[in-house]
Amino acid sequence: MARTEDILISVHPRHVDSMLSGRKTVELRRRPLKLSAGCRVWIYCTLPRGSVEAIGVVAEVVAAAPSVIWRDYGEQCGITKAEFDAYYEGAGTAYVVVFSLVTKLPSTFALGEIRRHLASFQPPQFFKRLLADGPELNLFNSALPLPVAA
């Protein structure tokens, strides 16, 4: 079976809540992300919660003019048009990560707990690629249920 790619992103609590409720099915970014369909996105909820709480699966990443992104994905953004316009002010290109799935982790990882295992852990400002056998991914994977044997 092919190995999936894993990244960690930081998202504000309001937007994590919108993702988990299904109101927000895309993640907006001002900078490009080179992600493949099927990439697992571990979602760190920023302070005051400060924990890895959810995981998403990328369907695709789309780059286009902000007006096109709003037209095509505005209802999936979980923000108002005014917030969208303010976020992309001055940007010629908008990037959107379209999720096929976002789900709450059965066990979350608070920042303090992560740092007990990985003292130098810092939440990413933009995103961080997780190494296949790296300590962060090994820790986060421990929150997932084991696959059922065939």
Rank of each mutant, 00 (worst) to 15 (best):
A149P: 09
Q122S: 11
G22A: 13
P124W: 02
A63E: 05
P123K: 00
R30A: 01
L137C: 02
H15G: 02
A59N: 15
Q125I: 09
N138R: 14
P124N: 02
G78H: 09
P48T: 07
R29T: 13
G134W: 07
P145Y: 06
K24Q: 07
V98T: 11
F140M: 06
K128R: 15
V68A: 10
Q125E: 10
A37D: 15
I69F: 01
L28W: 00
R115Y: 06
R3G: 00
A110F: 15
A86K: 14
E83W: 04
D72N: 02
W70Y: 12
Q125Y: 10
H12F: 04
L33G: 06
A132L: 05
L28F: 08
R40T: 02
G50N: 11
Y73M: 05
P32A: 08
V97F: 11
H15K: 14
Y87N: 05
A132F: 14
V96H: 01
S51I: 08
V58A: 06
L33K: 14
C45Y: 07
R3I: 13
V62A: 06
M1G: 11
R40C: 11
R14W: 02
S10K: 14
A37R: 12
A65I: 10
Y73A: 00
L139Y: 07
F99G: 11
T93V: 08
Y87F: 11
V11S: 00
D85H: 01
G90L: 05
V96W: 00
D17H: 08
S36N: 09
G134C: 01
A64S: 13
I79N: 01
E136G: 08
I9D: 09
E75F: 05
G56V: 00
V11W: 06
M1L: 10
E60D: 15
R29D: 04
L146C: 14
F126K: 02
P48L: 12
A37C: 08
R29C: 03
V26F: 10
K104A: 15
E136L: 14
Y95Q: 04
P48F: 10
V96T: 03
P13E: 06
E75D: 12
I9V: 15
K104L: 06
R23L: 13
K24E: 09
V62K: 01
S107E: 13
Y95G: 07
T80Y: 08
P32Q: 01
L35I: 04
V96P: 00
R129A: 01
M1R: 08
E27L: 07
V52R: 10
I7Y: 06
D133C: 02
T4I: 08
V62E: 02
A2K: 12
L118S: 02
P147C: 11
P66L: 07
R31P: 03
L131R: 15
V61P: 06
T80H: 02
T46P: 07
A82W: 05
L137F: 01
F84D: 06
A110W: 14
V16K: 08
E83P: 01
A37E: 13
L137G: 07
